[in-house]
Amino acid sequence: MEEQFNEQQSLKLIQEMIENAKSKLEAGSFYYLLWGWLVLAGTLIHFGLLYTQFTYPYVAWPVIMVAGLIGTALGVRKSKARAKTKTYLANSIGFLWTGFSIMLLFILFSAMMGKISWSMSNILIIALYGLSTFASGGMIHFKPLIYGGIASWLIAIASLFVAPQFTFLSIALSIIVSYLVPGYLLRNREKSQRHV
């Protein structure tokens, strides 16, 4: 059986359904907080160990990377199992962060091969955080991420003029302003939207 309905009702229905489909949440805060805390811990450990006699100040990074990758894989698996729809937005964000990971590996590889210094790789990574959070913020219309991205770019520029070991503190600062602070604010937004 099909109900008859007029043009006004038809338009109202379209608006309602589009609004419903749009209000799907992208639970991004989990990843910002996960990587934010891990990278903050990694950089501070690395910076601290530079002032000891320890031969391998980068010792914490493999553990941190593995923990981050496991956390990310679990998060993606959980959200895929829960999501009943695929949005264009989630797809674009996925491409952006995949591109980010490839760029990150490229920068680390260049440093490992001795093509760029470790301090320069730190600065490029900060600028890359800037790009990714700036673009993500624009996509999900979330200003703290946009401002965090701009702040990271400014930190990257300022870091060109500091002693090499202090670029680790620059990463720590960049992670706080572009991942952790926006991450907590985003989590609050997600919570408040869930309660609507």
């Binding site: 099909e2 109900e3 309905f5 038809s10 229905l13 379209i14 309602e16 359904m17 589009i18 419903n20 489909a21 749009k22 799907k24 009943k84 729809t85 695929k86 949005t87 264009y88 797809n91």
Partner: peptide, 21 residues
């Protein structure tokens, strides 16, 4: 038709959607 229009309005905003959604 009310139901078919609802389906199309949902799908126009999404890349894909499951039956249960």
């Amino acid at each position: 038709s009310q139901l078919r229009l609802s389906i199309m309005s949902l799908l126009i905003s999404l890349e894909s959607a499951e039956f249960s959604y």
